[in-house]
Amino acid sequence: MEALILVAEGGGPTLFARMAITRALNRHYVPEFNPKGKEPHWGRRKLKRDK
C-alpha cells in the first residue's frame, strides 16, 4: 500500500507499485515444479521451400 500511495501522491516509481500489487494478489499461489520441463527440439528446422 505504501508504494501505491507514493505513486498516487508524489509520482513515485510505478513499477514498484505494480510489483507490490501483483505480489499481494498472488500471495497464496504455490508454483508447481515440473521436472520434465520443455521437450528439446532435435530435428532440423523446416523451411517453407522444403514443404
Results as ranks from 00 to 15, higher is better:
48 K>H: 01
6 L>T: 08
33 F>C: 12
31 P>C: 06
35 P>D: 06
23 R>A: 15
30 V>E: 13
24 A>L: 15
29 Y>C: 08
9 E>F: 02
20 A>G: 07
9 E>P: 00
13 P>G: 02
42 W>R: 12
37 G>K: 06
9 E>Q: 09
14 T>C: 03
3 A>W: 01
40 P>W: 02
32 E>D: 13
40 P>I: 01
1 M>R: 08
25 L>T: 11
47 L>C: 00
43 G>W: 01
19 M>R: 15
37 G>M: 06
36 K>V: 15
14 T>V: 14
46 K>C: 01
3 A>V: 05
28 H>N: 15
13 P>Q: 10
18 R>L: 14
28 H>W: 04
11 G>D: 10
29 Y>P: 02
47 L>G: 02
27 R>P: 00
15 L>V: 14
7 V>P: 02
7 V>S: 05
21 I>F: 13
43 G>R: 09
20 A>R: 08
35 P>T: 10
46 K>I: 12
29 Y>T: 13
40 P>D: 11
47 L>S: 01
13 P>K: 08
5 I>E: 06
48 K>Q: 03
15 L>I: 14
24 A>R: 15
28 H>M: 05
26 N>H: 11
24 A>W: 09
50 D>S: 04
26 N>Q: 08
30 V>D: 06
45 R>T: 03
32 E>A: 14
21 I>C: 10
37 G>R: 05
33 F>Q: 10
38 K>A: 14
50 D>R: 02
32 E>Y: 06
3 A>H: 04
5 I>S: 05
16 F>R: 11
35 P>S: 13
11 G>K: 06
3 A>D: 09
17 A>E: 09
25 L>R: 15
17 A>L: 10
4 L>Y: 09
3 A>F: 06
28 H>K: 14
34 N>Q: 14
40 P>S: 06
43 G>H: 01
39 E>V: 08
17 A>G: 15
26 N>I: 04
32 E>N: 11
14 T>I: 14
25 L>W: 08
16 F>G: 06
16 F>L: 15
3 A>T: 12
13 P>S: 07
33 F>D: 11
9 E>S: 04
13 P>N: 15
29 Y>S: 04
27 R>I: 11
44 R>Q: 03
13 P>I: 09
16 F>V: 09
30 V>I: 13
13 P>W: 02
15 L>E: 15
31 P>N: 06
35 P>M: 09
49 R>P: 00
40 P>N: 06
13 P>E: 12
9 E>H: 05
46 K>A: 02
46 K>D: 00
24 A>G: 08
9 E>D: 05
15 L>S: 11
5 I>P: 00
14 T>M: 10
48 K>G: 00
42 W>V: 09
35 P>A: 09
32 E>F: 10
15 L>C: 03
41 H>Q: 11
12 G>Y: 05
42 W>Q: 03
23 R>G: 12
29 Y>G: 01
6 L>N: 10
22 T>D: 13
14 T>W: 07
49 R>M: 02
30 V>S: 07
47 L>E: 03
39 E>T: 13
18 R>D: 11
11 G>R: 05
17 A>H: 05
26 N>C: 10
41 H>W: 02
1 M>Y: 12
27 R>W: 07
48 K>P: 00
16 F>I: 12
50 D>P: 00
46 K>N: 00
49 R>A: 01
38 K>H: 05
8 A>W: 05
11 G>I: 02
